[in-house]
Simulated scan of single mutants.
Amino acid sequence: MTHQNDSSRSGVDTAAAPLVEAKRITRRDAQRGQVLLHPTDFALHAGERVVLTGPSGSGKSVFLRALALLDPLDGGVLHWHGQPIAHARVPRYRRHIAYVRQRPALIDGTVEDNLRYPFSLAVYRGATFDVARVRALFDAAGRGSGFLARESAELSGGEAQIVALVRVLQLDPEALLLDEPTASLDPESARAVETLIAQWFERERAARATVWVSHDPAQAQRVGERHITMRAGMLDESAPAQTAMGALR
């Protein structure tokens, strides 16, 4: 079980309803019956930048996917802006609480095809593709003119991750759940991803939040202000930040 930290240290208004609140959520391996995520409480407020650390296999990805409602919960409940999430609202919830995986999944075609794809889905009906905005995002990541016309199959791992991230950022989510998005990238691409996320966050800091899984102590210091740790499917934020950082080493 987790313990609430004093988020006021980073200027976060904890009196407001959290963007996302997990109440005793659990996950089990359906085949083996193994507990993957023990009953967990967690609240993510607007304005927070959370870093999640812990050993490999400790359940960090399980936790993030549970928060994103990508996998069914075996117990507990998630609230969004103080309200439980009805089944019919799950697609809309996923639009605003966006999961970014370590290895991006792109469709065949160009970079622009990949960016336009979400607007073909029912949940984004009424939204329109803004080519000027995505060009500005790519410029910020050091990818200039001509990048939209590149074939997705020809992109490097770093370029593919930047495309996947821009595809999410253009949709204006409230929170990003970042599952080691730079783990397999070269340093230049990793910093480009960090820059994109930082600019997105600062643009509307009072209304946005991030949860970032990282094994890199230096990166964790850059991208997070609140540090929590996962060990054997149990979330803990009672330890001081220095102890949490030690879990990365």
Rank of each mutant, 00 (worst) to 15 (best):
Thr2Ser: 14
Gln4Gly: 14
Asp6Pro: 10
Ser8Gln: 14
Gly11His: 13
Lys23Val: 08
Arg24Phe: 10
Pro39Asp: 07
Asp41Phe: 09
Glu48Ala: 06
Gly57His: 06
Phe63Met: 02
Ala66Thr: 15
Leu67Val: 06
Asp71Met: 04
Asp71Trp: 04
Leu73Ala: 05
Gly75Ile: 00
Gly76Phe: 05
Trp80Val: 00
Gln83Cys: 07
Ile85Glu: 03
Ala86Val: 09
Ala88Glu: 13
Arg89Thr: 13
Arg89Gly: 10
Ala98His: 06
Arg101Asn: 13
Asp113Lys: 03
Arg125Met: 08
Gly126Lys: 03
Ala132Glu: 12
Leu137Pro: 09
Leu137Phe: 11
Phe147His: 05
Arg150Gly: 02
Gly158Met: 09
Gly158Asp: 08
Glu159Arg: 01
Ile162Met: 10
Leu165Ile: 12
Glu174Asp: 09
Glu174Gln: 05
Leu176Gln: 03
Glu180Asp: 04
Ser184Gly: 05
Ser184Arg: 08
Gln199Lys: 13
Trp200Val: 01
Arg203Asp: 15
Ala209Val: 02
Ser214Asp: 07
His215Val: 03
Asp216Pro: 04
Pro217Arg: 02
Ala218Pro: 09
Gln219Leu: 15
Arg222Leu: 01
Arg222Gln: 06
Arg231Phe: 03
Ser238Tyr: 12
Ala239Glu: 12
Ala241Asn: 09
Ala247Glu: 02
